[in-house]
Amino acid sequence: MKQILLITDGCSNVGESPVSAAALAFAEGITVNVAGVIDEGAIGEQGAVEIAEIAKAGGGMSRIVTTHQLSHTVQMMTRQTVAGTIRHAVNQELKQLFGLDSVGALPPPKRAEVVRVMDELEETSELRVALLIDASASMKPKLHAVEDAVRDLALSLQSRNGRSAVAVFHFPGDFGHLPCVLDCGWTTEAGKLHSMFTRIRMKGTTPTGPALLQVVDFIRETCGIIKSELLEPPHIERGDNEEVRSDYVV
C-alpha cells in the first residue's frame, strides 16, 4: 500500500496542476491525502478548494486543521486510508464473486469473518507513506507542528506488525531545477526523523503539482516491485464509495 500525504497551507502557483498530478498518482496505485494547516487565519477559499480537489483526484481525503490538531489528523487519515483501501478491495471482490454491494450485505456471522480478515490485513500489510511538506515562506511558523506530526506518525507506523516505512520530502527545492527535495528516504525508525527541518530554507513559490509528480517518480523507482495484488486500488467506480468514506468522520 502506498500513500502520499501532502501537508500545505495554500494554493500552488508554479507548474502543472496538482489535481492532475494527484490523479496520476492514484492511477499508479498511490492514494493522496491532504492536510491543510492553518494558524489563526483561515485558509483562502481557492486554497481550500484546491486541497479538496487534490484529495478527490488522489482517491484520498482532505482535512483543514490547526497546528494543534495536525498530529491527530495525520494519524487518522493514514489509518483510515489503509482501512478504506482494504475495504474497497474486499467490496470489489464480493461484488465480482457474489454480486453483493459491500461487506454490509453479508449476514452477520459471515460479516464477522470477513472483517476479521480485513483487520488482519490492516495490521500486517506493507505500508509506505511519503510525506510531502510545503516549505514555502508562509509555512515557517507551522513547521514545528509538522515535524511533531511526522515523528508521531512514524512512531505509530513503527508499532504496526506489517512492514511500514516513511519518506519525507519538502518543496520547493533548493536549486531551482528540482521541484522538491528528499529529506529522508524510506525509514522505519522514528528516531531518524529528528530535527530534519532545521536546514530547510524557506522560499516563496509553491510548485505543488511538480513536487507531487516527483514523489510519484520516487515511489515508482523505489518500490515498483512490491506491488501487492489485493491492495491495488482500482481506478474506476470511485463514485459512491468515496461518498461513504468522506462521510463518516466527524
Binding site: S102, V103, G104, R111, A112, V115, D119, D247, Y248
Partner: peptide, 13 residues
C-alpha cells in the same frame, strides 16, 4: 448504530 458496517463489525468482533 453506524453507517460503516465493516468498522462496526470490527468492534463487535
Amino acid at each position: 448504530f453506524s453507517d460503516e458496517a465493516a468498522e462496526l463489525q470490527g468492534e463487535a468482533n
